[in-house]
Design a protein around this nucleic acid. Structure first.
Lengths: 209, 209
DNA sequence: GTATTATCTTGACGGTGTCAAGATTTGACC
DNA sequence: GGTCAAATCTTGACACCGTCAAGATAATAC
């Protein structure tokens, strides 16, 4: 963390947090640089001392999103250090939770609002870190016979896509009522995870672990 | 129709097409109502005769995206009417192709830029139609023993998410070079599809069908 | 042929991203 | 401690944006 400085102190982080707050209040469409500045108590052009443009702020907010995901899923993985299957389920569920608790932060993090991701090394590094965690979990599950063997990179892409697609469809309300009435979200997740695992979990049983 | 008249004739569709063109030229961030109007050769407020606001135009552009996907995947399914496995592969590949050929149209279609989807019945209907097609294909594959049995709705969510996640990660350039150098995109797709199918396809073989 | 309606233009408003110029504070160096 | 350059923030301006109101024009219904 940058040490306490002059006028504001730690405006850069304050702007990111203000952005997260506005996202949860006004949604992705309501996020503007001027509103973020006002929320942080500075003038409308102050952010330009810390961010080159709006894209750069969004990139920082996305990085913050990936950080939260990293914390959530690494905590989830620590819950059952010796049980890859439960690690798998808990990690996936942690990801889903973030998507449901902070939908707009989740959305802006993955919506491709950052057009040239490679211009933001911190963001690239953070996504790499998250992907590495998933890849590592996938490899462990493959060793344990829970997932099919094969190139762990690609299997990880598949797993991530599966869970991410699930969150997206829930967010957009595209899951039919006939399904929603019969299963909890967690049961639905386990149902979907069953598609790619070699073991078969009973949704009702695993939802309560 | 061609020459300039006070009344355009078919401005509504012209605006949608202008929007698609601008998307491919300037990306999602460069899409504005005024630019779309100019591209279509009308004044800056003319779109308001056909769209309530920018959201409504984006919803129409998203609907157009779903239409293109519908055409592509239904054509793909017709290629091998009696072979569910090939139908499955070709349909997924058609989806990937659209994402790679028109990345920004693909992105705006699924980025949640339309905040309240339910306000746009045509869009809801079109997504429902596409999902129905996938669901139908999934059911057929389940009957043929290619996919695990179970609630077809949820299996379809999984399949869609898997393929969609694959496109997203490719678009963002997050697939490692070590993988990109060894496999074509189509081989990578088949690799991923193997994760959820009960049959095992050889990527090298199936990539050339 | 006239009246009504749909379509399009013009002009205006507040909000937005961004830059330039200037004010203020900090930290480093003597 | 005093001086100065760099970092930080404010103010003001500009072009662009989404949106609305008022009016002009064309198509259509009668």
């Amino acid at each position: 963390m940058p040490t306490k400085k002059y006028h504001h102190g730690d405006l850069k982080n304050a702007l990111i947090q203000a952005g997260v707050k506005i996202l949860s209040k006004d949604g992705v469409g309501g996020l503007s640089l001027r509103k973020v500045a006002k929320e942080a108590g500075v003038s409308h052009a102050a952010p330009y001392a810390h961010f080159a443009d709006k894209q750069a702020l969004i990139a920082a907010i996305s990085t913050e999103g990936h950080k939260k995901i990293y914390e959530k899923i690494s905590r989830a993985m620590e819950k059952h250090p010796a049980d890859p299957l439960r690690q798998f389920v808990e990690t996936a569920w942690a990801y889903v939770e973030f998507g449901l608790e902070e939908p707009d932060h989740f959305r802006i993090t993955f919506s491709g609002a950052v057009e040239q991701e490679r211009d933001y090394p911190a963001l690239v590094e953070m996504t790499r870190k998250n992907f590495g965690l998933v890849r590592q979990l996938v490899a462990r599950c493959q060793e344990a016979g829970i997932l099919e063997p094969g190139e762990a990179d690609l299997v990880a892409v598949g797993v991530w896509g599966l869970v991410h697609g699930f969150v997206s469809l829930i967010q957009q309300g595209q899951v039919s009522h006939s399904v929603l009435d019969h299963y909890t979200r967690r049961e639905m997740l386990i149902f979907i995870l069953n598609q790619i695992t070699r073991v078969r979990m009973d949704p009702r049983e695993f939802a309560n672990l």
